[in-house]
Design a protein around this nucleic acid. Structure first.
Lengths: 210, 210
DNA sequence: CATTTTCGAAACGATCAGTTTCGTTTCGAT
DNA sequence: ATCGAAACGAAACTGATCGTTTCGAAAATG
């Protein structure tokens, strides 16, 4: 019978970041980089389910054996490649104007979501629905940190008296990011001015101004 | 190769409800229903990619040939099964209180999203990322109609003076539905009171009260 | 130089979507 | 009644991809 495999063997996903101390041939750093690069390149060309381990190996110029020696699954490789590529983008702004920072942060995020990396992100999030490991990694390494960034900026705006005190920060974050997720998942484009429009409408509220 | 363009996609989705006109054995309505029911049952048990056509056929008590005689793909079958099951749920409310209607509409939607049907919806939306046909069908037959419902209620609330005039209805809708999509895609639960909290925060806005 | 480990090539076994074949069944039309 | 067109079930069949393994050769360390 089929059983939801869920890797019986504990994942060798442990990619000894540190140099091998023991004797013997050390891991090839060149291959590692080639694999991560190939993964990101392929992600730009096709959604995750259409990326085959064979194509990945071929693009990277390594064998499949090498892939599975260091990663537990195709998903793990591709995710690493994505993280590796986008790791140092969009550091949260930190000027002395909290609202400007918030707007700038949102613009960065929405700009990313609207471009090629957004499509990649969408395909990863979508795949997360079918691979709990993938979803968790995505949440822990991308979504949660980004949401924390947003919340820090929100807190600063509240402290500066620009936003209402006692805000539900988590809900705020979801309202802010919601439209991007909505469009990502429905396939609608994310225009350049969307971030500003979202922020504007959110700050003002839908209600009639008293 | 035989003509790959069997029937233009979604056409066989709506098979003759009436008896077949031409000669020959008419289509088995029992099989059709059994297939749709089986599809919905399987969707409740596992995400779409894990549903095999063989399992679908077995559950419905039909042969795979019958499946593909009437549907063009596994996705089309499953989508039909889902639509068939949820078709007549949650008609948009229409009392004389626009804001109450809006709240009630949102509660219904979020309640669905938070339950088993929401998980199914999530898996379908996620799969839509990898099947353009599926995404389009989902948008046309579910997302767009629901958003139109929301917008109608918004318009009525505006006309009643309960919401600000000249609202960007599309953006409003995305803000309203955004948090549900966000949670659906990150795997976070959707609590019973989320709809009210979203609506409350949206109507008031994040800004400091003037 | 010996040890240890990697690497590439290829093969393996399994699964799945979708198609085809074939013999049987069903029903409308004659 | 009966004929025949089309639907039906069972199962074989395509063609593709998957994760994983095996094996010998290459290479880096001590």
């Amino acid at each position: 019978m089929t059983d939801p495999d869920h890797s019986p063997s504990q994942a060798p996903t442990e990619p000894c970041t540190e140099a091998a101390r023991g004797p013997g041939r050390p891991r090839s750093e060149a291959s590692r980089q080639a694999i991560l690069t190939a993964a990101y390149e392929l992600l730009q060309e096709k959604p995750l389910p259409e990326i085959t381990s064979a194509a990945l190996a071929k693009r990277a110029g390594v064998s499949k054996a090498t892939l599975y020696r260091w990663w537990s699954s195709k998903e793990a490789i591709v995710l690493d490649g994505y993280f590796d590529a986008i790791e140092h983008r969009f550091p949260p702004p930190a000027t002395d104007d909290p609202m400007a920072d918030l707007r700038s942060h949102l613009r960065d995020a929405y700009s990313m979501m609207g471009g090629p990396d957004g499509r990649i992100f969408a395909s990863l999030v979508a795949s997360g629905n079918f691979h709990e490991k993938l979803r968790e990694a995505l949440n822990e390494q991308l979504n949660s940190p980004r949401c924390r960034d947003t919340q820090k900026l929100l807190v600063r705006a509240v402290e500066a008296g620009r936003l209402a005190p006692a805000l539900d920060l988590e809900l705020c974050t979801e309202l802010i990011w919601g439209p991007a997720f909505f469009r990502l998942m429905t396939g609608a484009p994310i225009e350049d001015d969307l971030a500003d429009r979202v922020l504007g409408m959110l700050v003002c509220g839908l209600g009639t101004k008293a």
